[in-house]
């Protein structure tokens, strides 16, 4: 569905991604894990057209989308839930959702259906639909951010750090809803610092380390990979002979 080859992205003189290749197949949940500053968010921004890569290839369903602006990428069916939610705080919940469906704002019936679907997945949002989005709690804002992206009817959903700053209970709720969206047929790429959480819900995973992918595999095997666990716990070894 999405395939990326040799992606190089820089912020000014700093190379953030140094030749990243990865792919996502229809129906998968793929986790991209790695420490802070590994380049996860940069990758997401590049896929969604916010950043221009130096070189490389991004193909969505066979089409090269590397030069496409964000709106065209949304139109093709890729939506990003950005890090830190980035909801439209002064607007109401409903307005946020309507804007999610901005590119198909004429399709009133479809929007209505999707709103119903979203409200059934996130009943909290229905309760608060006329409230200013900025007044929602962190978890509700995350739900809103996901729901807003869903309103564009994407086929591929990019989730950037959905767990950031959420209480464990709320996190469970969010993860469940992600699984639910996947069951609805949505393919998902999830970027997480909370590696174990992301690997629990995903099918495959990639490990990004300072702009390079150093490991990939099924989530089950990555979850048990000592390197991943060490990275997750923030403990590294000093001597190769350590037991």
């Amino acid at each position: 569905m999405l395939s990326i080859q040799n992606l190089h992205v820089s912020y000014g003189p700093i190379k953030v991604l140094k030749g990243v290749s990865l792919h996502i197949d229809q129906g998968e949940i793929v986790a991209l894990i790695g420490a802070n500053g590994a380049g996860k968010t940069t990758l997401m921004s590049t896929i969604s057209g916010l950043l221009r890569p130096q070189s490389g290839e991004i193909k969505f369903e066979g089409q090269d989308i590397i030069k496409f602006p964000p709106d065209k990428i949304v139109k093709l069916g890729i939506s990003l839930v950005p890090e830190g939610r980035q909801i439209f705080a002064p607007l109401t919940v409903l307005e946020n959702l309507e804007l999610g469906a901005y590119l198909r704002s004429k399709d009133k019936k479809g929007i209505k259906e999707d709103l119903d679907k979203i409200f059934s997945i996130f009943p909290k949002l229905k309760e608060r639909k006329n409230q200013q989005a900025g007044t929602l709690s962190g978890g509700e804002q995350q739900m809103l951010a996901i729901a807003r992206a869903f309103m564009a009817r994407p086929r591929l959903l990019l989730l950037d750090e959905p767990s950031l700053g959420l209480a464990p209970m709320v996190l469970e709720l969010i993860m469940d809803s992600i699984l639910e969206l996947n069951k609805e047929g949505l393919t998902i790429l999830i970027v997480e610092q909370n590696a174990i959480k992301a690997l629990e819900i995903s099918t495959r995973g990639y490990v990004l380390e300072t702009g390079r992918i150093i490991l990939q595999g099924s989530s089950n095997e990555l979850k048990e990979d000592p390197d991943v666990i060490r990275a997750y716990l923030g403990k590294d070894y000093e001597e190769i002979t350590e037991r």
């Binding site: 980035q86 439209f88 002064p90 590119l103 992206a149």
Partner: peptide, 22 residues
């Protein structure tokens, strides 16, 4: 919707781009 989009744009340009607003 354009008006809302303009408000959205005023609040957060990046997020506005991400919902497909030109």
């Amino acid at each position: 919707i354009w008006g809302k989009a303009m408000r959205a744009c005023a609040v957060n340009k990046k997020a506005a781009k991400l919902v497909g607003i030109k």
